[in-house]
């Protein structure tokens, strides 16, 4: 074997090791799209609660029965749209990378993310039942961040940073109650767009 073959061989082994242990089919562009859905959702939420008249008195209080339901449906709609987009675009990217989307690594990643996500989801439902609405925005940010940090072991290291920033925002949201929507605009909107753009530029 000559030297070029050897170097090529070692490089090949390296890429196989990485491919087998990291799930790299997550699409950066889907991050950008998710961020935009979140911004759009936040716009509708703002409109419902504060109206369009600029900086005036709010028309409704978040705790009004109808408003809560409207906001919950809006949030679930954005969530469903985001999940759908991520899965669809990951599938497409996996096809391009000739990687299976359902492999040991993606399974391990989802398993790692499942515990923080389920805990956060259940906790939020308990808060809804008990009427602790002020805590919901922060809780979801924190547990989403924890899930990202846990799953990041299996994918791009940028996901870890996204997770840490989401956790930080969630903690800040607890310190500044009443600004939950704005923390969501930054956490689910802007951060996703920036993260998605970085991943797209760096890896695609």
């Amino acid at each position: 074997m000559d030297q070029k073959d050897l170097i090529k061989e070692i490089g090949h082994i390296r890429s196989i090791m990485e491919k087998s242990s990291k799930f790299l089919s997550i699409s950066g562009l889907s991050g950008v799209l998710i961020g935009m859905y979140a911004l759009l959702g936040a716009f509708f939420a703002y409109q419902k609660v504060y109206g369009l008249g600029g900086f005036t008195y709010r028309n409704h209080y978040v705790t009004d029965e109808g408003v809560v339901v409207y906001l919950a449906i809006l949030a679930l709609l954005v969530l469903a749209l985001s999940l759908g987009t991520s899965v669809l675009m990951a599938k497409r990217k996996a096809k391009r990378l000739k990687q299976a989307i359902w492999n040991p690594t993606s399974k391990a990643m989802l398993a790692a993310m499942a515990f923080p996500l389920l805990t956060g989801g259940l906790l939020t439902m308990i808060f809804v039942c008990k009427g602790y609405f002020a805590l919901i925005a922060a809780t979801l940010l924190i547990f989403y961040g924890l899930a990202l940090a846990a799953g990041s072991v299996y994918t791009f290291k940028e996901v870890r940073w996204l997770g840490i920033l989401e956790i930080t925002l969630g903690l800040l949201a607890l310190l500044f109650p009443g600004y939950g929507l704005w923390f969501w605009v930054v956490g689910f909107g802007l951060l996703h767009i920036v993260y998605g753009f970085i991943v797209y530029k760096k890896y695609e």
Binding site: R14, I16, E18, T105
Partner: peptide, 26 residues
């Protein structure tokens, strides 16, 4: 043998790996 080296690489990078996933990957 190249395949053996690759298999070993995959097992080094992961706790464990199953036959069909190895087959697909390699």
């Amino acid at each position: 043998n190249r395949l053996r080296l690759q298999i070993m690489g995959v097992l080094l990078a992961n706790e464990d790996y199953d036959f069909s996933s190895l087959k697909e990957l390699l």
